[in-house]
Write a protein that binds this DNA or RNA. Structure first.
Length: 328
DNA sequence: CGTCTTTGACCAGCGC
DNA sequence: GCGCTGGTCAAAGACG
């Protein structure tokens, strides 16, 4: 959190520069996934426009409810809106979080925390019932030998189960950065052909600011979930945001699910010599930190591209810093 | 001593 | 109604 505080002013300055150089875009999306300079055909462009319009419409329809129901924080605003100043947004966010934290101060004992969690959960469930949908889940299948994936957030393990179908254990984590944060994730080793991959499933929305690396991850997964939310689940529109990886849509146990498969690149990088290396929407890399604190970083990164300008207006969910032991 | 992990028990949803 | 399964709880132990 300290590092995040130090880096934030730099980010804000960077955001301001980007805004000044992209005034001609009418849409301000809370994402910067990056997109290479592709010669996109007109038809794909049209599909992309439709997708973005759908997202914008779905969210601007006063759909705070929808966002909560899907568990993803994501917002698109018009650049003509004076509220689009990123500094103001961050300030508002900070105030929002501060207010929440103030509210949370009275939640001191473990029992109270549990009660607060249950109340939050009930509230979310009620909203879900109203919308007829369960929370959107985002699965990230990542290749790694170690389940310790660091995407900037802190997680506390609260359970582990061995399913009958898959004998490999599934671990349950809860975000520990805030006592009332409802975000949960499941980490399960893939038991099929690829035993060196882990499937991480995220659910819920963080109620606190995220570190920088976590916001990258959050932005990418938010894109997938937002597409899902907008009803734009076609491979074409999903490929817009994730041009280099397999993205699929499914519904399991009434949970709309977006699966990002980082184990198999969609394209052969050798055949795309013009793509900037860092422009891939998703990246997975190992840090050089020595064991036993060996960790891997899962992040979304991107260069500025032809895609509409992006900035964070609300901290999105989906990040994790996993510490697992004794699972192998 | 506080925090985190482990693990058996418990509960709710679902299918038969 | 019963059994199965996934998800969560909570006590006990480990760890720094």
């Amino acid at each position: 959190m300290h590092v995040s505080n130090v880096i934030r002013p730099q980010l804000e300055a960077s955001m301001e520069l980007n805004i000044n150089s992209h005034d001609d875009f009418g849409v301000d999306i809370s994402l910067r996934l990056g997109r290479p300079d592709l010669n996109v055909s007109k038809s794909v462009d049209e599909i992309d426009k439709i997708s973005l319009d759908k997202i914008s419409d779905a969210i601007s329809e006063g759909s705070d409810k929808k966002r909560s129901a899907h568990g993803i924080g994501f917002r698109i605003q018009s650049c003509e809106d004076p509220d689009t100043d990123p500094t103001m947004k961050l300030d508002c966010l900070s105030k929002d979080v501060k207010n929440k934290n103030m509210d949370n101060k009275c939640v001191s004992s473990r029992k109270d925390v549990k009660t607060a969690r249950n109340e939050d959960h009930q509230e979310v469930l009620e909203r879900q019932e109203q919308t007829g949908l369960k929370k959107t889940r985002v699965c990230v299948k990542a290749p790694c030998e170690d389940p310790s994936i660091n995407d900037g957030c802190q997680w506390r393990k609260y359970g582990q189960k061995t399913a009958k179908v898959n004998p490999l254990p599934r671990a349950y984590y809860r975000c520990s950065m805030s006592s009332t944060c409802p975000v949960r994730k499941q980490v399960q080793r893939c038991g099929d052909d690829d035993t060196s991959a882990y499937m991480t499933t995220y659910e819920g929305t963080h109620d606190h600011p995220l570190p920088m690396e976590a916001t990258h991850m959050a932005a990418g997964t938010s894109a997938a979930a937002s597409l899902l939310q907008s009803g734009s689940s076609s491979s074409a529109s999903l490929s817009y945001f994730f041009p280099f990886h397999n993205v699929s849509f499914s519904t399991t146990n009434s949970h709309p699910t977006v699966t990002l498969d980082l184990t198999r690149p969609k394209y052969d990088p050798d055949q795309l010599p013009n793509y900037p290396l860092s422009s891939s929407s998703l990246s997975f890399s190992s840090s050089d930190r020595p064991s036993p604190s060996k960790s891997q970083t899962l992040s979304f990164s991107g260069l500025r591209s032809q895609a509409p300008l992006v900035k964070y207006s609300q901290m999105a969910p989906l990040s994790h810093q996993t510490k697992l032991s004794g699972q192998q």
